[in-house]
Design a protein around this nucleic acid. Sequence first.
DNA 1: CTGAAAGCGCTTACAG
DNA 2: CTGAAAGCGCTTACAG
Lengths: 344, 344
Amino acid sequence: MSSAAAPAPKSRSRGRVTLADVARHAGVGTMTASRAISQPGMVSAELRARVEHAVRKLGYVPNRAARALASSRSKVIAVLIPSLSNAVFTDVLAGIQDALDQYGYQVLISDTRYSDAEEEKLLGINLQSHPDGVLLTGLRQSEQVRAMLAASQVPVVSMMDLSDDPEDMTVGFSQQEAARTMVRHLLGKGYRRIGFLGAQLDERTLKRAEGYRIALREAGLYEARRELLVPDPSTVGLGAEMLGRLLAVAPDCDALFCCNDDLAYGAIYQCQRRGIAVPGKLAIAGFNDLPASAWMNPSLTTIATPRYRIGYEAATLLRQAIEGTPPASRQIDLGFTLMARESA
Amino acid sequence: MSSAAAPAPKSRSRGRVTLADVARHAGVGTMTASRAISQPGMVSAELRARVEHAVRKLGYVPNRAARALASSRSKVIAVLIPSLSNAVFTDVLAGIQDALDQYGYQVLISDTRYSDAEEEKLLGINLQSHPDGVLLTGLRQSEQVRAMLAASQVPVVSMMDLSDDPEDMTVGFSQQEAARTMVRHLLGKGYRRIGFLGAQLDERTLKRAEGYRIALREAGLYEARRELLVPDPSTVGLGAEMLGRLLAVAPDCDALFCCNDDLAYGAIYQCQRRGIAVPGKLAIAGFNDLPASAWMNPSLTTIATPRYRIGYEAATLLRQAIEGTPPASRQIDLGFTLMARESA
DNA sequence: CTGAAAGCGCTTACAG
DNA sequence: CTGAAAGCGCTTACAG
């Protein structure tokens, strides 16, 4: 039909169903089709129905990349956690998912494996998706990470701890206070030679160790030799091994505070093998209150942490920041609960 | 300078540094800048250096959405797992991450919570990102999910099990054979009244239950009353409770095969509370070999499953399918290992 | 309430 | 090895 004046446009079509196809099928403009999908309220009932029918009929799948590019809102939230194999953080993730579920955000989960270098790398990759917001674990990020975050101007909420900078958005509880509370509980039970087992040496472990020291110093009972810190990842096996190492240098401990439940499980199992009565000869306490802690024998005295709620509230706070809703508070302290059971 | 003929283009710029900025700064064409970043080998060393310098200087962050839109390759791989709070699947994820780490894929992790409806919903959302490939757990997907996958024409690899359809790409092991192997081990140890505890009732649990039945029928020892299956999620607490329920109807069991380690932990803990000697009075076996199983008392007899390798090999197989590399095999059986320990 | 045009930031053929 | 133009599939102002 047309004169040969204009060359045929080169088509790079992928044969996918596009919004234009839907609009054509429904006999409306592309715009209207777009609105019928994203803002149904702004389109008349009839056109909306026609568009919806066309969507279904053609099996239209919106293209997120195109939407993100055109709207400059990616509807992506990036989450950086130090470990996916630690139940603490999968509980946090569950809370995040539940909080964001109905708001159309895509959650990008990254496991930094407790490594700053890995965190930088993963954040860099995530930033390429231009997330609308970022959820971080802890407060002590590397300079690099801070710089990247600042340059991207993306809203950030930190999880698990509390900041003393009122500018920060944080949801968590005081790691140090929680540890101090546990040690005071042990002191209250009459224990006087309390040891500490810490692994990974991440920010939270160090804060718990500090809480332990503070509480013992307050009681005039702190002795550095009762404290064993190693950088290895926390596992049950490591707890078993560390118990042996600590008792080798401080055999007179009457109680042991482990920086998490996994270590405590290992310590208890090792005591059982060695015939050391728990808590009779050695009381043992953990941190986190994992599901097995209430069931093992002896049941484990530990600190219950509000992991799910931390994820839920942090995601909600971030969403509000993204959407411009003024949050009631930028700092949310969710507290912790001492679970006094049989082991200590 | 210019005459007023052409209206000024409306700018919707976001103030972000773009490839065009980098190109301008480096004094090259946009194309060359693009290539210097994506295919460095195709650009002369000098221009490449200039582009790299500009990238660093301007703090350029590539826009994934734009890249995906223009190239029709999202470099996204969607992973659907039934649970993030089950260590089995976080190990699988670790393998996936490690396999894909160096190839520039963004991994989209979705937790379907053992729900078909949730799986459909999450797959639908993931498909909007037009993933280059999808990693699925198990073989029994809903009709909906299958239809969506077929329509999207995206390559799919199934994890955890083995398919008898040679068209399928699968990486796993025979759940049924593994269960059968465990029951045979128990039979070999002289146990004759072997019970079974199963929860969640997902595909894998049902296959393990079937393996249990087959092995006992082979020995002429199957009795339906020794089998307890409940749909609740597997937890240590549930294992403890189920032990009580099973012994109430079949108090003469001399061994118990639990569909996973969590249930087995709970069963053992419950025996300890009730003064039932394990394995003296009741032998107990699990499935998966979680890290604590080797350490608890008694140590747990279980089946070690190659979870990390399943993730690693499945991701590699998928990547090869995406990139057009003919894989050595579309079906990879990674096997399993009986861990005979103290409990059975 | 509805729509034609322009633009988001890249990469893909196509020419040099 | 290098580059100008067109296009990917949406949404954003801007007009009706």
